[in-house]
Design a protein around this nucleic acid. Sequence first.
DNA 1: GACCCTGTTGCCTCT
DNA 2: AAGAGGCAACAGGGT
Length: 645
Amino acid sequence: MPMPKPRVIYWFRTDLRLHDSPALKAALDLKPESLYPIWTWDPHYVYRARVGPNRWKFLIDCQNDLSQSITKLNPHSKLFVVREAPQTLFPKLFKAWRITHLVFEKDTDAYARDRDTKIIEIAKEAGIEVVIKTGRTLYDPDELVKQNKGKPTMSISQVQAAGAKIGEIARPIPAPKSLPDPGETNLDFGQERPLKTPDINAIQRNGEENSYSTLAGPNGDFAAPTLEELGLKPATTPHRGGETIALRMLSDLSDNEEYTATFEKPKTAPTAFDPQATTLLSPHMHFGSLSCREFYWRVQDIVDKHKGTASQPPTSLTGQLLFRDMYFGAQAALGYAFGQTYNNPNCRFIPWHLPSDIDTSTGLITGKHLTDSATAQDHFQRWKHGRTGFPWIDALMRQLQHEGWIHHLGRHAVASFLTRGGCYIDWERGAEVFEEWLIDHEAACNIGNWQWLSCTAFFSQFYRVYSPIAFPQKWDKDGDFVRRYVPELRGFDKKYIYEPWKAPVADQRKWGCLVRGDGSGGSSTSEDGDLLVYPKPMFDFAAQREICLQGMKNAYAVGLRGDDKRVLDGTWRKLFDDSAEGPTEGESGPPGAMVAQEDRGEAQQAQDETTTTTPVPKTRGSAAGTKRAAGQTTLDGLVTRKKKK
DNA sequence: GACCCTGTTGCCTCT
DNA sequence: AAGAGGCAACAGGGT
């Protein structure tokens, strides 16, 4: 019996490009009779992962651009976006389109591994040959871990040592010059629709989510969806996706040889916004609209030309990619546990405020959090929505929400502020907000960076606290960045731009904005005329910094990791004073840093904004009262609390 | 065990 | 005006 000619599904995921795709090359090397470029509409992304309209928009840009590029190579082809989960869709497609091979790029994200394992099983059962190639990172994360003695990669030197053992980073592969036709694209089968609830992205929508109404979309043409089809609110980001744009941006970068060769990340300005000080290529890296090897070699060839004056990893441009690989290696080694403190052997345990709710049957965080302190909950909301009263922090958070991107050092500033250097709130809360809003959200990098900045893993010098006043002044003495994103303060003298509450009220009036309240009334006009309002700072930063330092010092001295038995069973509390910062009262309690809470119905929980729950006083134990009365809005009186032992 | 060095990106004061 | 040193001090790897 002659071998059937290959009929191949190429499954696009986080590799939305034609240039330098090792997996796509493998598909073409099969010399297929038919090649189907497919995107499957995974309900995990639609309903379970946090994705705001800006990242959706970037993804759809990438899909449309890729589809057009495919059509340019073969007018009969395009990106076929099929609106069903891959687990149920593929068996039907295999049959209907007489598929022989399934090809895709390896993905080591925790969820992706689970999904792909299942897909491989399904394909095997259907007699389909599966071809998987590494291509998302410089090195295969699993190989990197293997060469790092099987341990998660926790420093750049480990990555460099393990990478050296693997060998030279591959040169990019040119884009294909032609693509085979797809075969027939009949859909003579039913559509399996996912459960629409729980929908973690309900708050992102202002319309009905309709993307599962038909397999091939509303026009039956397999087109990429629109934000309207997804029922999403309009996107506000000025940044655009797609391989065409990414390659142009890379060319613009490499045209500027001096910038490319001498780039040092810590010297770039987080306050620059027109244009930004860094490459803006991170979202393209995430969606694969630019290959990391394409970027690596374009830069490295320029660096080699400028020996002597060129910057070196880790601060150089290629160094940034090494950090990316480092975080992928850590994630590949730890799986789901990488994304949380609970049960994570690599992560320090610190009893932050607003701890994650944990499903003890799976050992995984649920995506909800518990409110141990009404004050912390208020701080969190004010941080998230850019009304802390610290202009530098508020400007960054507003830029993040509106544009979906902020400079790396800006991320440091807001992350330090939320966790170890300000609010003493769980880094997992911050990571969730970044997941929701960043257009370049990469799970491994986001989680890793939050652990870094909160000093729970990768980094430990917690006494290096970022000041919301001094830090931005290194680059922006005049406060132009604040004026751009916090327009209420546009008229303020530079002397007060980072500390507007210190300005005399007469000057505040003259400059058109009063500093008062907590920002809950918005930034519109005050009751007395045309004056704008900007909130007072939500705490005394210097005092709060001391509280955090003491808390960190104490937690470090206790020295627990996330997988310590005492963390798992809640008895870690014995090791902390009741008065220590965080939900530390009593000697035993719920797992992790969870706090007792009243039973609440699912419906009630779903009504709360994303992950928040209403504050509930603790009832455990007689001595275990609330350290802070619900509704308390300042930390006055706590700042002089004496040190533990 | 003691010491030293390194670690992408702190702040403040002094020179 | 850029750089050094003090601040009170971390982990991890090497000797």
